[in-house]
């Protein structure tokens, strides 16, 4: 039975918590936003591009990022807001590359639409740059087989799913998500690993993502 095959290494479920720290930087127009995006710590870029994914545990909303939301909804530059929301976060392997893509999108837009520079927000509606401090801990849940892994995936917190799918891949700069890595390296199931790694996690709520991955695991069984 494929599901009872023992892994060469067990999978230890970790969990991750986010503590928010203020950077003291804020922007009231697009030039200020761009200037700060270029220099804030990568933990701030990470925070503002992943807060939506982390916040929506059950609610299924198309994920966006804080920059897109603020530019489109608060600053009122709907076109740039859309362009920023369209940045396909899943394509990037590092925060550095993601930051470059955001900067490039804004700079290209400013070259084309000079009017964007004249927009500013009223006092109190500025964009505040926050950074994320991650605290990572191992849980008591350990899986040695696909069967155990599937059972525990139903049980672990959404924080744990978030950590292994989003944080491990982009923030810790692993090649893929932790689930796919383990399925391939410890169970030798390249096909299943590939199916999970080809998912775009940014379009699911965390509970939706859990359901989707469990669906793939059970189908395999």
């Amino acid at each position: 039975m494929r599901t009872r095959l023992k892994a060469t290494e067990p999978f230890v479920f970790h969990t991750r918590f986010n503590l928010q720290e203020l950077t003291g930087l804020k922007a009231a127009n697009i030039d200020q936003l761009l200037r700060h995006i270029k220099k804030v710590p990568s933990s701030s870029i990470y925070h503002h591009t992943h807060r939506f994914a982390e916040k929506h545990h059950r609610l299924s909303l198309v994920s966006s990022n804080d920059f897109a939301y603020w530019v489109g909804e608060i600053l009122g530059d709907g076109m740039l807001g859309e362009k920023l929301a369209g940045i396909d976060t899943v394509r990037f392997r590092t925060i550095h590359d993601l930051r470059e893509a955001i900067v490039g999108t804004i700079e290209r837009h400013l070259d084309e639409e000079r009017g964007s520079r004249r927009m500013f927000v009223y006092h109190g509606a500025e964009f505040y740059f926050v950074k994320s401090t991650s605290v990572i801990l191992s849980t008591r849940y350990t899986a040695c087989t696909l069967e155990e892994f599937t059972r525990l995936l139903k049980k672990v917190s959404t924080n744990s799913i978030y950590f292994h799918v989003f944080e491990a891949r982009l923030r810790l700069e692993k090649r893929t998500n932790d689930f796919s890595y383990w399925l391939e390296s410890s169970l030798g199931d390249t096909e299943l690993a590939d199916r999970i790694s080809r998912l775009d996690p940014y379009i699911y709520s965390l509970e939706g993502l859990r359901k989707k991955i469990i669906g793939l695991l059970e189908k395999r069984a």
């Binding site: 710590p41 990568s42 933990s43 950074k131 994320s132 401090t133 991650s134 605290v135 990572i136 801990l137 923030r171 810790l172």
Partner: peptide
């Protein structure tokens, strides 16, 4: 007790 952005406990 930690200064880093990613804290492994």
């Amino acid at each position: 007790y930690h200064g880093e952005d990613i804290i492994h406990l």
